[in-house]
Design a protein around this nucleic acid. Structure first.
Length: 925
DNA sequence: GCAAGGTC
């Protein structure tokens, strides 16, 4: 702190904290609870504490009050607030104002009244970017009534006496850059959120039949840079599950039982997808079933207690242990915090400060009837149970990890959820300061006919923290004693089949994990974003797992089909990087704002041009209403020819709202036959001239006018063209611009198809390209939004090049041979496997949505066995021990061609089944 | 009727 106050005269200092509890605690610490007075402010929650204090020799009369988080909000100016007052694209530039909302006016009044009386303002907001921004909001309010205020910032990371005294003696100036970063975030969030939300709501809400229970409220199809990536995680997992093709695998299981117990030996190959190979190896084991012990290893293993608890871990664990939603968890935690039983529940910190008195917290818990005795042992040095907690590596510099602050055996007013959550916080804390559990592990490896197997036995030597942390367990199993070189005959040796399973739907804990890793939301808001998915009817939660609704899936699909990754976390991650750059002065606030908004506006305009993708995606799931939902591009047009797809309606020429032309079927959406025309057309009129070549006729020719600079030299600006297929000029221009014919009447939209987005419609001609590319490289021009200074890979509105989920969906539809599904009876298709062990092998799979059942391998069908797609020399994964089927008589052969076994069961010889289904399989002593 | 971030 460089400046001093008013010499020896007592000055009045207004201190402002981010929340009432901090104002109270800091006042208590600084005053040492001596001469501390409290009086009411204008807001019933935000009291004012008064006491005397000396800052660097300067006697001060301290006034300490608080806000409750942000004091201000940003909003569009009045004339832009009504949804129909402007085009949503205008929201990228509409004037924005920051104001104190109605429910914070009383806090503002308190600040104004106190600031008028003071010479200094000391800001005690949380020490993060948001806290710095709130600090500037407080400064704005206070300075407006007292421009002479001397403004200071106190830095503290926990509410510990020494740190607070130190903070007030080392005041600095507030950091404008930190605050700027938050201003940028707020403005981008508002402009993107409001524009896209209005756009997609007004476009789709009335165009489809949605039967969501909105309780009389308007249906809002919101978009937000946090809620959409959260939805994206849910949809992506769902697509992964749908794209999963079950595959059968085989593994050899061995067990050995003695008086000392049972050892289950696992095949060290894991499992094989090649049945023949597995059978051959199994057969060798059966023929030479003596096991030889090749390794016995004994070692001590430790299982460590968890790190101290932060918000995300609290939410994840409450979800896992109690199936409590993150929203509920935070509500209950807030209650417990408000009533003083646990510490502040919104914290990223998972390590305790070295100055925290950890023992006091345990002492309080000694009285508890259930975990009290454990707390007593923990405090007894002779038990050796105490261990200083580990460091999780996160520190928000504002709050300690979540820990119990007051003992309770359970309050009468507590719900079951309150009891569970308090217990979790206490047990977690006690676990953190306990020794790890100790186990003795024995690993035994055996060899049967050259195949290796291993078994693990564990005995728990000391449970330690597991005694109190009942939510975790550590399975122990006794196995017999073995010695190196020992031989024995297994009790059972079986060839078991299994089938690969898709991953499960995302649990709340998984979803929080995804968001945490991708930086979506903050610890205080993540549960809000999750709840928003269900509030907006984008996802449902069933048995603690999230599944997208048709609406959620369709919206993501629509943007994905446009090629945008608005539903992926990258946009938020890039914004977060820019915020960091602003906060350390590496980028200017105005530059980041301008660049980001320019790019997002380009993305918005492009999305609007391609809105048909959203329609197509929603049409897969919902019926259309008679209302257009603002989409009028399919209403009128000039007749070009009879539709060559539905043969029932006409193909008509239309001009789209963006000025570009297309030819589509008048029966849209029942028929989605469409011809996209080059973007270089400035005018197009259907003439009465009929093409003499194209059939079936009549096909009316069109008088086109092209923009000179957008067509190659040698092409005429005026052209009487035919779109029936005979016209080379049109064909060439269409190819150059990536436009052309598409029949989408039978295929739901997936991927770009031939519909080139408008940005590609004015490609330079061949001669111009090298020069243009060079210019682009020199200027680093984004090929998407056409702004300089970044490439398309750095564009906020990233286009999707890597569409794994969609390509999987597309690839899964490569079959052509019908066969009824054994599960649902729907027709199946023949597909080609793409896994390492079965690449190229054909199989039948059900095509019915929601079934997707793997039916069988093509070569396992009896009538086709002789000519199966696998060759007789299929090699196993075991080098020289290859084996397979011969091509003709269906017998197994070894790599040398010697017959090994017939196609009948090699265990009992019955031709009606194979060994894996044999009732006698396995070998018993 | 829209975002996300604070907190009560």
């Amino acid at each position: 702190m460089a400046a001093r106050g008013g010499g020896g005269r007592t000055i009045r200092v207004l201190n402002v904290a981010e929340k009432p509890s901090v104002a109270k605690t800091v006042s208590g610490i600084l005053s040492n609870n001596q001469g501390l007075r409290m009086r009411e402010g204008r807001s019933r929650y935000n009291k004012i504490f008064e006491f005397n204090y000396t800052i660097q020799g300067q006697p001060c009369q301290m006034m300490f009050t608080s806000v409750t988080g942000h004091l201000m909000e940003i909003e569009f100016e009045g004339r832009y607030r009504k949804w129909h007052s402007c085009d949503p694209v205008d929201l990228f530039e509409a004037p924005i104002q920051k104001h104190v909302p109605e429910d914070k006016l009383d806090i503002r009044r308190t600040l104004e009244e106190e600031a008028r009386k003071c010479q200094w303002l000391v800001l005690w907001l949380d020490c993060d970017r948001e806290g710095e921004n709130i600090a500037f909001e407080v400064v704005e309010v206070c300075s407006s009534v007292n421009s002479q205020l001397n403004i200071w910032r106190a830095h503290f990371s926990s509410l510990i006496d020494r740190e607070i005294h130190q903070a007030v003696q080392q005041l600095t100036r507030p950091n404008q850059l930190f605050s700027d970063a938050v201003d940028v975030r707020q403005e981008i969030d508002l402009r993107i959120g409001a524009s896209f939300t209005r756009f997609q709501t007004m476009l789709l809400k009335d165009a489809f039949v949605f039967n969501f229970p909105t309780d009389g409220r308007n249906l809002v199809l919101s978009y937000g840079p946090c809620q959409f990536p959260t939805l994206g995680f849910v949809v992506e997992r769902y697509w992964e599950i749908q794209a999963h093709e079950p595959e059968e695998f085989w593994k050899i299981q061995c067990s050995h039982t003695t008086d000392e117990g049972t050892a289950n030996f696992n095949w060290m190959r894991g499992h094989l997808f090649d049945y023949t190979c597995a059978v051959l190896l199994y057969e060798m084991c059966v023929q030479e079933p003596i096991a030889t012990v090749t390794k016995v290893r004994q070692q001590e293993k430790l299982k460590y207690p968890p790190h101290p608890l932060n918000t995300i871990e609290l939410e994840k664990r409450a979800s896992r242990y109690f199936r409590m939603s993150s929203e509920k968890t935070m509500k209950v935690a807030e209650d417990l915090y408000q009533s003083g039983f646990i510490s502040y529940p919104r914290t990223e910190t998972d390590s305790f400060s070295t100055r925290t008195d950890l023992h006091i917290l345990v002492q309080e818990q000694q009285a508890h009837p259930v975990w009290g005795p454990y707390a007593q042992r923990l405090l007894d040095p002779s038990s050796g149970l105490w261990r200083n907690p580990s460091n999780g590596g996160h520190d928000d510099k504002a709050h300690p990890p979540i820990h119990p602050t007051k003992f309770s055996p359970g309050e009468s007013g507590w719900s079951e959820d309150h009891k569970k959550l308090y217990e979790l916080v206490v047990r977690h804390y006690l676990a953190c300061v306990s020794q790890p559990a100790v186990g003795a592990e024995t690993t035994v490896e055996i060899d049967i006919a050259g195949e290796m197997f291993s078994a693990l036995g564990r005995t728990i030597v000391a449970k330690n923290y597991l005694e109190v942390y009942r939510f975790e367990s550590w399975g122990g199993s006794l196995i017999p004693n073995y010695t190196f070189g020992q031989q024995f005959t297994p009790t059972s040796l079986t060839l078991d089949s299994g089938i690969t399973r898709p991953p499960p739907l995302l649990s709340e804990s998984d979803l929080l994990d995804c968001m945490d890793k991708a930086g979506i939301g903050t610890d205080a808001t993540m549960h809000d974003h999750i709840k928003k998915l269900t509030d907006r009817f984008y996802a449902t939660k069933e048995a603690s797992h999230f599944k997208p609704t048709n609406l959620g899936e369709a919206l993501v699909m629509g943007y994905d089909d446009m090629g945008y990754e608005l539903w992926k976390p990258y946009l938020r991650s890039m914004m977060e990087e820019d915020m960091k750059a602003v906060s350390v002065g590496n980028k200017r606030k105005d530059d980041v704002l301008a660049t980001c908004l320019q790019q997002m506006k380009a993305c918005f305009l492009d999305a609007r041009v391609n809105k048909v993708k959203l329609f197509q995606a929603l049409e897969i799931f919902f019926d259309r209403t008679n209302r257009t939902g603002g989409d009028d591009q399919h209403n009128h047009g000039q007749l070009v020819r009879r539709c060559d797809v539905c043969h029932d309606s006409d193909l008509v020429l239309r001009k789209k709202p963006d000025g570009k032309f297309m030819i589509g079927c008048s029966a849209y959406p029942q028929c989605r036959n469409v011809i996209w025309l080059p973007g270089s057309i400035s005018e197009a009129v259907v003439t009465q001239t009929v093409c003499n070549t194209c059939t079936p006729g009549p096909v009316f020719k069109i008088e086109f006018t092209f923009r000179r600079l957008e067509i190659p030299p040698g092409f005429s600006v005026h052209h009487l063209g035919c779109v029936g297929g005979c016209d080379d000029v049109m064909r060439q221009l269409m190819e150059m611009s990536g436009s052309g014919h598409r029949n989408s009447s039978t295929t739901p939209a997936r991927g770009r198809g031939v519909t080139a987005p408008s940005r590609n419609n004015s490609q330079p001609n061949q001669q111009q390209q090298p020069q243009r590319q060079q210019q682009q490289q020199q200027q680093a021009t984004c090929s998407f939004c056409h702004q300089t200074g970044h490439s398309s890979s750095d564009c906020y509105s990233l286009t999707s090049q890597n569409r794994s989920a969609r390509s999987q969906r597309a690839n899964s539809n490569n079959g052509d041979s019908p066969l009824p599904c054994t599960t649902c009876g729907s027709p199946c298709v023949l597909k080609t496997a793409n896994t390492e062990s079965n690449r190229g092998r054909k199989f039948y799979s059900c095509q019915s949505q929601g079934c997707k059942f793997f039916v069988c391998w093509e070569d396992s069908i009896p009538t086709t066995r002789g000519g199966g797609s696998r060759s007789a020399t299929t090699t196993s994964r075991r080098g020289g021990r290859g084996g397979g089927q011969d091509g003709g008589n269906g017998r197994f052969v070894s790599a040398t061609g010697d017959p090994v076994s017939g196609r009948s069961c090699f265990i009992c010889g019955d031709p009606s089944h194979f060994a894996n289904a044999c009732p006698n399989r396995g070998m018993r002593n």
